[in-house]
Design a protein around this nucleic acid. Structure first.
Lengths: 221, 221
DNA sequence: AAAAATATTTTGATCTATCAAAAACATAGT
DNA sequence: ACTATGTTTTTGATAGATCAAAATATTTTT
C-alpha cells in the first residue's frame, strides 16, 4: 500500500514527465513542485526505488516503472474525476477545486470512484478540459486540437465539446456546434480575440477565442 | 492542525463516552476500538493532553476538553453526512459505507462539507438512523430506547441501528430492520435470551436480546 | 490477605517523512 | 583551465505513530 506521500510523488513525477517529454525527472524539480527540500526528494527517491515505483539514476533523476506509472495514472484519474464532481455536482468555484481534490484523491476508494464515475456519466474531460485517464490508465490520446488554434479558411470537423457549463452547451446546441459537424473559419481577429465562422451551410456568426478553445476539432481532410 | 490519527482518537473517545456515560474513558478500551496496543494508546494520551484535546488521568483514562469535544463532534458530523451521501447519492450498500466514510472524513474540507450538506438537503439523520450533529456540534436528542427493553406485544418504530458491524448490518437489511419500519414483538423468552418478532407484515423471526440491544426504537403510538 | 488475573505504563526500538547545513559534483563564464 | 554558480547528495536530527516486552498497579478470586 502506497502512502499519500508516495502517491503525490508519483503523480507529480508523471505530470512533469508528460509536460517535459524527458525520460528522467531531476530531483530538484520534484522538490520544487512538491514543496520539499532537495535532500528530502533524494531520500524519497531511494525509498521509491526500493519499493519498485521508480528507477533512480543518481544525479540524473527518476523515471516511473510500469507499476509506478499505473498508480500515478490512477491518481490522475481520481484527481480529475473529483474535480469534475466538485464543479458539476457541488458547484464549487473553478479555482478552489484543485486543492480540494488533492486531499480527497488519497481517501477515495476504487469502489466509490467507480460509483462517482457512473454518477457523473463517465466524463472524459475534467472542468479544466484535461482528459480523464480510463480505469486501465489510458489517456485518450487526442488527435484533435482546440478550434482556437486554426487559421482563417480552415475547414475542420468537430470532435468534442469540452462541456464546461450549461449556458455554453445551450449556445453550442443552438448554433449546431455538435460533434461531427463541419466548420469553416471565415475570419480571424486576434486583436479582438474573436473569429467568425459558419457551421455547415448555416448562418455565419462570431465567437470569442476563449470559447473556441472549448471546441476540439480535426482537420476536415 | 490535527492529524487523521488524532481525529480518530478523539472521535472514538467521544463515541465511547456517549455510549458508556462515563466521564473518563480507560486507555485499554481506546486501544481496543482503535486496534492499537495499550502502550500506544497511553503514549498518545499524553500527546493529546499536551495539545489540549483531552485531560489525561493516569490509570483512569482520558476525557475530552471543550476543544477536543468540538473537533470530535465535527468528525461525527463529517462521518454521518458522508455516509448519507454514499447511500443516497452514490447508492452504495448499507454495510459498506462505514469503512468508506472513515477514510473520507479526514480529507473533506469544511467548505466541501457545507456544499455536500446543502446538496443532500441538510439531512438530520444518517442511513443508520443516527443523528447528524449540527455545524455547532449539537446532536438532536433522541427519545428512543433499545428494542430489548420492550415487552411482549409492543409495537414500536425503528429509529436507528447502532451496530456498525458488516455482518449484522447485512442481517438487518435482509430482515428489513431499517429505520422507519414497524416492529411487533410476538413473544419474549427471557430464559432463552431471545424474542420473536415481525417487521411490518413480513415473516416472523427470532433474535437474541444481545442483538435487540443494537436496535433503537420508539413506541409506535 | 495472598495469589492470580487483568489493566496500564514504561522502555527501547523501528519506520516514515521531513529539515538544515555541509559536502560533493556539474556546468557555465570568462 | 579555473572559478563562480547551481544542483544533488550526504549527514545528523526531529516528530509522529507504532510495536513488543518488561515493569508496575489494580482488581478479583480463593
Amino acid at each position: 500500500m502506497a502512502s499519500s506521500t508516495v502517491e503525490n510523488y508519483l503523480k507529480e513525477i508523471l505530470l512533469v514527465t508528460m509536460e517535459s517529454n524527458l525520460s528522467k525527472v531531476p530531483m530538484g524539480q520534484i522538490a520544487r513542485v512538491l514543496g520539499v527540500t532537495p535532500g528530502t526528494a533524494t531520500s524519497m527517491a531511494k525509498n521509491l526505488e526500493r519499493d519498485g515505483w521508480v528507477e533512480y539514476f543518481p544525479r540524473l533523476g527518476v523515471s516511473l516503472t510500469r507499476k509506478g506509472r499505473k498508480l500515478a495514472m490512477n491518481m490522475l484519474r481520481r484527481h480529475r474525476l473529483l474535480e469534475t464532481f466538485l464543479v458539476e455536482t457541488l458547484g464549487l468555484a473553478w479555482e478552489e477545486i484543485h486543492a480540494e481534490a488533492e486531499e480527497l484523491e488519497h481517501a477515495i476508494s476504487e469502489k466509490v470512484l467507480e460509483k462517482l464515475d457512473e454518477f457523473l456519466g463517465r466524463p472524459r474531460f475534467d472542468p479544466h478540459g484535461d482528459p480523464i485517464p480510463s480505469r486501465g490508465g489510458v489517456i485518450p490520446k487526442l488527435l484533435s486540437k482546440p478550434l482556437s488554434e486554426f487559421n482563417e479558411n480552415s475547414r475542420v470537423r468537430i470532435e468534442s465539446i469540452i462541456d464546461q457549463n450549461k449556458e455554453f452547451l445551450r449556445f453550442a446546441r443552438a448554433r449546431k456546434l455538435l460533434p461531427g459537424k463541419e466548420i469553416t473559419i471565415l475570419k480571424l481577429e486576434e486583436q479582438a480575440d474573436a473569429m467568425s465562422l459558419k457551421v455547415g451551410r448555416n448562418e455565419p456568426f462570431s465567437m470569442g477565442l476563449r470559447s473556441a478553445e472549448k471546441i476540439l476539432v480535426l482537420d476536415a481532410c
